[in-house]
Amino acid sequence: MTGSQTHPNTLDVMQLNIALPNGHRLLRDVSLSLRPGEVRVLVGESGAGKSMIGKAVLGILPQNLKVTEGEILLEGQHLNAMTPWTRRKTVAQSAALIPQDPLTALNPARRIGPQITDPLVRIHGWSRTKARETALALLDRVHIRDPKRVMESYPHELSGGMRQRVLIAAAFAPSPRLIVADEPTTALDVTVQKQILRLIRELQQETATAVLFVTHDMGVVAKVSQQVTVLFAGKVMEDAPTERIFTDPRHPYTRALIAATPSYADLDRPFSPVPQALIAELQDDIVRDDARHQGGAR
């Protein structure tokens, strides 16, 4: 991988804090980075702030939330310092999103074809022919039979799995350097989940695209990633290479998450949720942390 010589990372998130207008923090000093072609999983329970990180990177945070501290660098460019217009263009040039729910992520009133090719033509300045050929090739690559017919279809004519394939094709179409995949398989049938996961993995490797992969499933982590960030209450608990996280988890919360993951290989192993005592202890830490942060800010 060559990449930019002066700045080797595709994404750097540095000491990112996101807060509600009342000052309550939803992300607490989150740092992480992605090298070109690398897959990093964000894992944690519901509400941990996984999606928030992806949204902050892509510039689609809800209006009431603000980045209060920290930096986001996309291919070395400071996103926070940009005007909204430049930022939008920069993000669109180098990043893409594979959304969680393929049923709501396609416009029901428009045909599939233009939904893939429109951004290529209108944002990336491609010719219609090139956009169409790329779309057809990618639809074929994501194992959609009869891509020409699918381009002419409306979303309601496709199954959930097909739609997610379409959205994956659309995400990879402009050759982004970073893809944020926010729980791309949770809304799908278990049988389809594996295929979709494999597909993202394959395309990611073929194109050497960095992927920020959000999941709450430790089982997925092992399958797709090189790096793992474990989150709890908007705070990074552990940041480690994937092979190490399973063999030698250092944070008690990571160990608890692994223990809480049902293992398909070993159905007899008792299922153990994350212990309440541990959660209480971690939350105490967070409260102390927030008090210190407030004190420091004043």
């Binding site: 669109a92 040039q93 893409a96 959304p99 992520a105 396609l106 209108r122 944002i123 959205l167």
Partner: peptide
């Protein structure tokens, strides 16, 4: 508020 409008914003549309 629908996801497809969010996706359009990510894709660079104003």
């Amino acid at each position: 508020l629908q996801d497809y409008t969010t996706l359009a914003r990510v894709r660079g549309f104003s």
